[in-house]
Simulated scan of single mutants.
Amino acid sequence: MKIFSCLKKLKWNLIIPAFFLTTLGLLSIYSSSLSSDFLIFKKQIIFFAISIALLIFLSFFDFRFLKTNSYLVLSLYFLSLLTLLGLLFFGKEIRGVKGWYKIGSFSFDPLPFAAIVLIIVLSKYFSSRHIELTRFTPILFSGIYTFLPTLLVLFQPDLGSSIILISVWLGIVIFSGIRIRHLLILILIFSIAFGFSWKFWPRDYQKQRIVSFLN
């Protein structure tokens, strides 16, 4: 009975579209593997099965305890920073980016873990600072939590992953009830910072991707 009660609590309006998109992705990988040994497809099936098992397993936990457990949340945050920092020294370079740990045939990308931890940290931060969102200072402090992992990702260098982390922060900031004036200030700050860094920060191929996307 407990299993059914936990399953009822799941956000099926989010899970079903995700399941549908994953199925489409698996079908696409399957069709592209018809002329090979289906190794990539088999790996994705295994990862998908593990994800479903984790989803069911984690549904038994009440994650509201994270709201009152600051030490655990901060420990997860610093652990995520260490995994990103370790990539600069022990990561395997693929196409000029050190974004993976390689142990034998097993590869591990710490970015998804860092993104999930960042969501937890920011959610906890804004849940305790929601009354102060009328001021700009709490928003800047939340940006520091995002700046540290983003900086480590940029050192890899991985522009796309850094944009993901910034998007996570912006999304949470917007839905936390930020004032329009503060949002415009953030956009102005990002625009100025991006303009100054354009000459010496993105590599040529990264600039080409950005220009192609904007066009």
Rank of each mutant, 00 (worst) to 15 (best):
M1F: 13
M1A: 05
K2I: 10
K2W: 02
F4P: 00
S5G: 07
S5M: 14
C6R: 07
L10Q: 13
L10K: 07
K11G: 09
W12C: 05
L14F: 08
L14S: 06
P17K: 15
F19V: 00
L21V: 15
T22F: 11
T23V: 12
L26H: 06
L27S: 12
I29Q: 03
I29T: 04
S33C: 03
S35G: 10
D37Y: 13
F38P: 00
Q44R: 09
I46H: 10
S51L: 05
S51D: 05
L54E: 00
L55F: 07
L58M: 11
S59I: 02
F61G: 00
D62K: 10
D62R: 08
S70A: 14
L72G: 00
S75Y: 09
L81W: 03
T83M: 15
T83K: 13
L88N: 13
L88E: 15
E93S: 06
I94Q: 03
I94P: 02
V97F: 00
V97A: 10
Y101I: 03
I103N: 02
G104L: 06
S107W: 15
S107G: 04
F108W: 14
P110G: 01
L111V: 14
A115H: 04
V117S: 06
L122N: 07
L122Y: 09
S123C: 13
S128F: 09
H130A: 04
T134K: 09
T134Y: 00
L140G: 07
S142G: 15
G143I: 08
T146L: 06
F147Y: 13
T150K: 04
L152H: 01
F155H: 14
Q156G: 05
P157H: 10
G160S: 09
I163T: 04
S167F: 14
W169N: 15
G171T: 01
V173M: 14
V173C: 12
I174Y: 15
F175I: 12
F175D: 03
S176N: 14
G177R: 09
I178V: 13
R179H: 15
R179K: 15
L183V: 06
L184G: 08
I185M: 14
I185W: 11
L186Y: 00
I189W: 01
F190M: 14
I192V: 15
F194W: 00
F196G: 03
W198N: 03
W198K: 02
K199V: 08
K199D: 08
K199Y: 12
F200S: 13
F200V: 09
R203N: 02
Y205E: 01
K207D: 01
Q208A: 06
V211G: 07
S212T: 09
F213Y: 08
F213D: 02
N215Q: 11
